[in-house]
């Protein structure tokens, strides 16, 4: 949950979503209008810095970044593979 809350806070801070917006972990960030092509760049940079991971080009696919749950899974997998 910590990763999800951190990402949610980031999206709010960057004005990608309103603080009172209800969004489930499995809702599509794209379909909800929260993230777009510029937003994804900012999100990737944030994840790399916050979690000390490198997002490879091959990882840049909607499956990894379209929902809060997918982002959490991706970050945790990257951290596990690093350790």
């Amino acid at each position: 949950m910590e990763v999800i809350e951190t990402i949610r806070a980031f999206l709010i801070k960057e004005n990608m979503m309103d603080a009172d917006m209800k969004i489930d972990e499995t809702d599509s960030l794209l379909e909800e209008g929260i993230i777009d092509s510029l937003g994804i760049q900012a999100l990737v940079a944030f994840l790399e810095e916050t979690y000390d991971i490198t997002v490879e080009e091959d990882d840049l696919m909607p499956d990894n970044f379209d929902t809060l749950e997918a982002i959490k899974d991706y970050v945790e997998n990257k951290q596990e593979n690093r350790s």
């Binding site: 794209l30 993230i35 777009d36 092509s37 510029l38 994804i40 909607p62 970044f65 379209d66």
Partner: peptide, 12 residues
């Protein structure tokens, strides 16, 4: 949908 999301997210 997945294919078009690549486009909308500007990925690759």
């Amino acid at each position: 949908e997945r294919s078009h999301k690549f486009v909308m997210m500007g990925l690759r």
